[in-house]
Design a binder for these strands. Sequence first.
DNA 1: GAAGAACACTAAACGGGAATCACCCAGCCG
DNA 2: CGGCTGGGTGATTCCCGTTTAGTGTTCTTC
Lengths: 211, 211
Amino acid sequence: MTVVLKKPHKSARKPKGDGHLRRGEILAAAEKIFIAEGYAGATIRKIAYAVGVSSTALYMHFRDKDQILLEISNDAIERLLDLNIQIAGQPIDPLSRVRLMLEAYMRFALDNPNTYQLVFCSTGDHVKSDKIGETMALGDRCFEKFSEPVHEIAAQGRLRSGSAVQAAEVLWSGCHGLVSLLITKPSRGWSEPEQLMRVMLDGLLHGLVTD
Amino acid sequence: MTVVLKKPHKSARKPKGDGHLRRGEILAAAEKIFIAEGYAGATIRKIAYAVGVSSTALYMHFRDKDQILLEISNDAIERLLDLNIQIAGQPIDPLSRVRLMLEAYMRFALDNPNTYQLVFCSTGDHVKSDKIGETMALGDRCFEKFSEPVHEIAAQGRLRSGSAVQAAEVLWSGCHGLVSLLITKPSRGWSEPEQLMRVMLDGLLHGLVTD
DNA sequence: GAAGAACACTAAACGGGAATCACCCAGCCG
DNA sequence: CGGCTGGGTGATTCCCGTTTAGTGTTCTTC
């Protein structure tokens, strides 16, 4: 879990108009540490040390710690949204689109566990930065994109139980439950993740949607 | 979220053999604060203040903060296990037992959101206390109890896809996903929890189990 | 080329978390 | 009476995120 701290050298002061370049360096360093050590492990001081700058310097570019990590997370969520948009544009039946989106969602979670936890597994009430609003909005847009094919299915009268909104919420939360447990309890003896994903999708989709 | 701090008076020193009574007082105070304010809100200092004792005194009875909160959580999980055992003993078909257990599980989560988060939504790698092992063991026993009727269903050849273990894991994680999102994202505009629970159960059970 | 403002950046400190340490004091037992 | 021991504490340590007050460099303007 703990990664070696690199770059103990002091980073050269930026020329006068180039302070904004620091911002990118901070984000890059923070992302590495955040991915490797998670929210609690990604300390302000540790990030600053990796950049080669005092911890105070970070506050010239970000209001607080959460703004840094949420900015990183937002980038990731945007990639997820792009995936959803791309799938939404495919000329296939809505059920297949739903399945593809949920698969992409779960793979995204397993590929970005710390981002996923920060965004989808925390209450977010400890966050002072208003960046959280942006994150939530992105998450909502993902859910909206995902809801579209579910509504199409509902319009075809193929929903076994519940409304379209309820079905979308259940599909989403079911997949969320699987990946969140796989992420937070990795030591538990799980079956193969790929197979669990398949069983979850087969189960939910067959259970909620008629052929 | 924040609760008024009571009992600012200093608690009388316990007579010589009665130090163990303190332990109960600490647990009671800690439980109140933990239920009201969650893990981060249940500070050692705050608990000690509520008991009317110095924060150091807590370390006479508990190794660390986690031991206190996990002891509280363990009591709750034991109640959940009892529920499962009671349902397991009912003379009804396994499918009904599965449904009853999952319903009880989700209601438990919604009734004990902070305990649920601590036990089922956190990685637990920040926990030094070995109490976490006890908690995990209790959780495992809950899962084992829940797995029994699923195996019965599998033995009847009524599983649509996946093994009995996989089906149990998917059923559990699906329900976990629903309640964990309801708990951690209460501000999102959810459908009625009761209906979502029904749709989740209908969907998963119909999708995984044949009649 | 000197003055001065603007900017990048820092040292030191604050307050609040968990946890530890050295100690204190009351009561009981011999 | 004297000492032991169990209940309890104040001060301290080490982190954390964050703030304050300031330093030193560089660019611009006279």
